[in-house]
Structures are given as C-alpha cells and as structure tokens.
C-alpha cells in the first residue's frame, strides 16, 4: 500500500498519518454517531439493568435478572423465532427480486425512467398509509380475493390466518422495499464498463453467462451494501406489523422490533424494552460481522 503512495503523500504522513486532516473529515459524522446513536444506546444498556415498576421513579437495580426474565418470557422467545423466520424469507427474496428488476430496468427501454420511478414510489409514502392500503386489499372480502374470484379461485385468508399472515407481511414490506434496493443496484450496473459485456459476447457468452461472470462480480460492492443494509433494515422493521397485525394472529407476525415497540411505547416498561433492544442490537451486530467475514473472504 505504502509502496503505491507517491513520495509527496508519504512525506506529509508522519506517525499519525493523516490524523489532523482525518479529524476534519470525520469529526462531524463521528460526533453525530456518538451523540445521536451510541450514547442513547449506552443509556439503554444501563436502563436494561434497572427495573422500573410501571415507569415509576426511582428505579431499582435488577442487573442480569432483567435478561433472565426476558428469556423466560414466551412472548419474547416467540418474537425471536418469528424474526428469524421473517429474515430468512424476506432478505433473499427482496435481494433477488431487486437484482432482477435492476437488470431489467437497466435495459434501454422506452419509458424506463418512469417504470423505475413507479416501482420505487411505495417507499416514498408514509408507512401508515401503505398499511391502510394493504389492510383493505387483504380483507377477506377485499380486492385481492375479488381478483382470485374472477379466475374462479377460492379466497385466501391473508392477515387473519396464523399460517398466511407472515407471508402477507413479507409481500407488503417487499412492495415497499424492493424498488428502493433496486435503485442502488441500478446505480451499480451503470458503473460496469460496457466493453466487458462486448468482450464476453465476442467469447460467445450467452445472456446468463454474461450475468453470472460479468454483472455479478462487477456488482459486488453494491450487492454487499444492499445485503447488509437490507438485512439490518428488515431486522429493525416494525411499522407495517404494528399497524396491520399488532403481532397477531396468535403471535405469528410478532417480530422482535414490534415486541420492543410495545414494551417501550405501550406498556412503558423501560427496563424490559431496553434489554430487548440490547439483544436486538447484539443480534444485528453478529449478523453483520458474519456478513463482512463472508464478503471479505469471497474477495480473494
């Protein structure tokens, strides 16, 4: 690395490298991250070790008992399970669909700009409104079943069935999210040198081979971003669940963040909500560390 650095730069870099200039570049962002995210998160760790009997001050020290209590709560254990199931389904699905759409909408088609925008648009309206729209669409007497009836098919139960509710939530959040992730992948596709495709075509590579051996490797950076950001976003997601099902029926859609929201905002159980938040952040961290490992090992 240093060998590639020209003499001028080396000359300026002392023992502390670009430290003074780095402070000016990174200072505001680090300050924002520490003050607006890490500090309140540290507060949550502290809060999680204290009990607030229905929000009453003063609080009492309960230490790790809070976590012990949490991990024996069937509702919390259920939400861990639902979150895992949700993540396993929704992340690969969203990334695959977003990638397919990005490739399609990267073609030179008439009106492609408008098409992209229409697919992106759902993320731009308030989630409460998205939820209202889908609450009506999913009604057993609603338009989705109406369309099925036109084809002579029986209706589904959607949000009213413990077996179909999570899948319905996946549909809603994918409708919202797919266009958003697609945009990042399209930006990545635009960076790929068209000469690479021409060369591959000369070698007789078909459409699939060009996708497999040119597009995917060249898109690695954007795909890595989408993989990490999408996974984390879905882990932290709760608004559609909170509005559409409140975690039901029978707890089948009670993702972890919804559980936290309820403890924090409805019940005002500050201690338990903080402990659950710590657990969620730890889970997110573990997943991201694994993803980083996989991505960097795949590079070599």
């Amino acid at each position: 690395m240093t060998t590639a650095t020209p003499r001028t730069a080396v000359g300026r870099r002392g023992r502390f490298g670009d430290w003074p200039i780095a402070v000016t570049f990174l200072g505001p962002a680090v300050l924002a991250a520490v003050l607006l995210r890490l500090w309140p998160a540290a507060r949550a760790v502290w809060d999680s070790l204290r009990s607030t009997p229905f929000g009453l001050a003063p609080t009492t020290w309960v230490g790790l008992d809070q976590y012990r209590w949490l991990f024996t709560d069937p509702a919390f254990l259920n939400s861990l399970k639902v979150t895992a199931l949700f993540g396993i389904v929704v992340n690969p699905l969203q990334i695959a669909v977003a990638l397919a759409l990005a490739v399609l909408f990267n073609e030179r088609i008439r009106g492609v700009g408008l098409m992209r925008t229409l697919v992106f648009l759902p993320v731009a309206i308030p989630q409460s409104v998205s939820a209202v729209i889908w609450a009506v669409a999913f009604r057993p007497d609603g338009p989705l079943n109406g369309v099925l009836a036109l084809f002579g098919l029986g209706g589904l139960r959607y949000l009213t069935s413990p077996g179909q509710a999570l899948a319905s939530i996946v549909v809603v959040v994918s409708w919202i999210g797919v266009g958003y992730w697609m945009m990042f992948l399209i930006a990545g596709l635009k960076e790929i040198d068209p000469n690479l495709y021409d060369a591959a075509a000369l070698d007789g590579a078909g459409r699939w081979a060009r996708f497999r051996y040119v597009t995917v490797p060249q898109l690695r950076r954007q795909l890595a971003f989408v993989l990490v950001a999408d996974t984390v976003s879905n882990l932290l997601l709760f608004a559609p669940v909170q509005i559409l099902t409140k975690g039901g029926p029978d707890g089948s859609t009670d993702v972890l963040m919804n559980d936290i929201f309820e403890r924090a905002y409805t019940e005002a159980d500050v201690g338990a909500a903080a402990a659950a938040t710590v657990v969620l952040t730890a889970v997110a961290l573990a997943i991201v560390v694994v993803q980083f490992r996989l991505l960097s090992s795949g590079k070599d």
């Binding site: 069935s161 413990p162 409140k246 039901g248 029926p249 029978d250 409805t266 019940e267 005002a268």
Partner: peptide, 17 residues
Amino acid sequence: VTFETAMNKAFADIRNG
C-alpha cells in the same frame, strides 16, 4: 394498559379463528 393490550390481542385472535 397491560390488561387491555393483552385482551385486545386475544379478541383479535378469537375473531380470526
């Protein structure tokens, strides 16, 4: 609040079968 939250969920589940 705890009571109402839990019961509203139970009522929703009963409605759903």
